[in-house]
Amino acid sequence: MIKPRLSAATWALSAVAAGVLLVGCSGSVSVGKSDPKLSKAKLADTVAERLAATTGRPKPDVTCHEDLVGKVGNTGRCTLTASDGSKLGVTVKVSSVEADSINFDIKADDAASPAS
């Protein structure tokens, strides 16, 4: 019986996904006095920092696809890319907004997509 080997990046993605799912990662960012909105760059950086803190691994490469508007229930999508090119989707969901601070939860998809 042949057992497939998983690359180090796949293991890393699995560890991040497991860490996010088990710990229930969340974040909070202060955005200023106008309508609360978090830029996709700042969101990606915050998600990467929270994932690193949750898993105890180096900060991953995260890209978010749109700004996150600070309204409870709003969601956004980000992508974590491993060194081998495989990708793991991440959803952020606004849990509360307090003055100029957006609080959100982070949940990784169940499975990574292979490198293209």
Rank of each mutant, 00 (worst) to 15 (best):
M1Q: 13
K3G: 13
P4W: 03
L6Q: 13
L6M: 13
S7W: 07
S7I: 01
A8S: 13
A9G: 15
W11H: 14
A12I: 12
A12L: 14
A12N: 14
L13F: 03
A15T: 14
V16S: 11
A17V: 01
A17L: 04
A17P: 01
A18N: 14
A18M: 12
G19D: 08
L22E: 15
L22V: 11
V23R: 14
V23P: 06
C25T: 15
S26T: 12
V31K: 06
V31M: 01
K33E: 09
S34H: 10
S34P: 07
D35M: 08
P36T: 02
K37C: 10
K40E: 15
K40R: 12
L43T: 03
L43Q: 04
D45M: 08
D45P: 03
E49P: 04
A52L: 00
T55Y: 02
T55I: 01
P58F: 06
K59C: 07
D61H: 11
V62E: 00
T63F: 05
T63M: 09
C64N: 07
C64M: 05
E66S: 15
E66Y: 09
E66W: 09
L68M: 06
V69N: 12
G70D: 07
G70Y: 01
K71P: 03
K71M: 10
V72G: 03
G73C: 07
N74P: 01
G76V: 05
T79N: 08
T79E: 14
L80K: 02
S83H: 08
D84C: 00
D84W: 01
G85C: 03
G85V: 04
G85A: 00
G85Q: 06
S86A: 15
L88Y: 06
G89F: 02
G89W: 05
T91Q: 10
V92H: 02
K93L: 03
V94P: 05
S95Q: 09
S96G: 09
S96T: 12
V97H: 04
V97R: 05
E98G: 12
D100T: 12
N103W: 07
K107D: 10
A108M: 05
D109W: 04
A111W: 11
A111M: 14
A112I: 07
A112Q: 13
S113I: 12
P114N: 10
S116R: 08
S116I: 11
